[in-house]
Design a protein around this nucleic acid. Structure first.
Lengths: 169, 169
DNA sequence: AGTGAAAGAACCTAACC
DNA sequence: GGTTAGGTTCTTTCACT
């Protein structure tokens, strides 16, 4: 699986690859599947104007190359018994920055966690969580964050509403 | 489409509905499709231990009820020519809070925007964006946020890495 | 790379517990 | 609500361009 926009050696000098790794048809396939991930291959082929067999080859190539990392049903966490969402800013102790990857991996594996954003600013992470109730949220913050030796401080913001944007997965 | 956890009138007093709107089989269907959204109905039926036709009925019911809001291919924005991600905290002027919904709708419709989080804290929004390059990010912040009459201040944090958690869509 | 046709798999409407 | 049975549609391979 190739990473996008990696450096390519041509003349001994690293050169940024052309941003457009995807041709027009690949882009249209990706766009269609980001909107309607369960669209049948047939319909997809019609939409982008190629034969079904070609479309299938291209789809597999997109998956093999890691362009499409997976397909997911979109479910409101409230339906899963987690109606309370929050964004928690986390700042680590400066002497714990070496363990930053392990820490974020541990976070991402917790059942409350939707997203972990690893940041360049004053805060080290923003952690997007969904909790069963206020007490569940409190215990997540206190037991898994505040009391961890790596954590210097946390700041919890309730989320009233979450809108997916145009680019959203 | 019914919202989860809405109030139900039984005796004239609003009572919170049981959190478990979904039975065991529905939960297993949802869990399977959150991991593998393109899994064929047949395989899904096998996995949860019911007949394919029953499974299809349940899947449609889950979609009708709004439990499953859609299916999406997961694509790294870098492959779409947007390798730079940022989380932008936005605070509105207090006299612009009436237009808060229109404002977040406008944001969510912009091509750079992945997610808009509408918050309860000091910041009104966190806006998750992906930009083509640093200049693109700058112009998004300056042209669409800082210069908007509703906006009091913004704070942009680059995102080094974004990990999906266990609960992620 | 793209195509078309044919075999196999999945879907989906029923009739029936 | 659940299933088995069937015609219909989709997927997938392969020989060819």
């Amino acid at each position: 699986m190739t990473a996008p926009c990696e450096a390519t050696e041509v003349t001994g000098v690293p050169v940024a690859k052309d941003v457009r790794e995807l041709d027009d048809i690949d882009e249209r396939i990706v766009a269609a599947l980001r909107r309607e991930g369960r669209m049948p291959n047939n319909a997809l082929a019609d939409k982008v104007g190629i034969a079904a067999s070609t479309c299938l080859t291209r789809l597999r190539s997109l998956i093999d190359r890691g362009v499409i990392a997976g397909f997911h049903a979109e479910v409101d966490p409230a339906w899963l018994g987690r109606p309370i969402q929050a964004m928690i800013a986390v700042r680590l102790r400066s002497d714990a920055r070496g363990a930053i990857t392990e820490f974020s991996d541990r976070l991402a594996g917790m059942p409350e966690v939707l997203n972990v954003y690893f940041l360049a600013g004053a805060d080290d992470f923003h952690v997007h969580v969904a909790a069963r109730d206020p007490e569940d949220l409190r215990s997540f913050v206190v037991d898994h964050l505040s009391s961890a030796p790596e954590v210097a401080l946390t700041e919890t913001n309730l989320i009233f509403e979450h809108k997916r944007g145009r680019l959203a997965e």
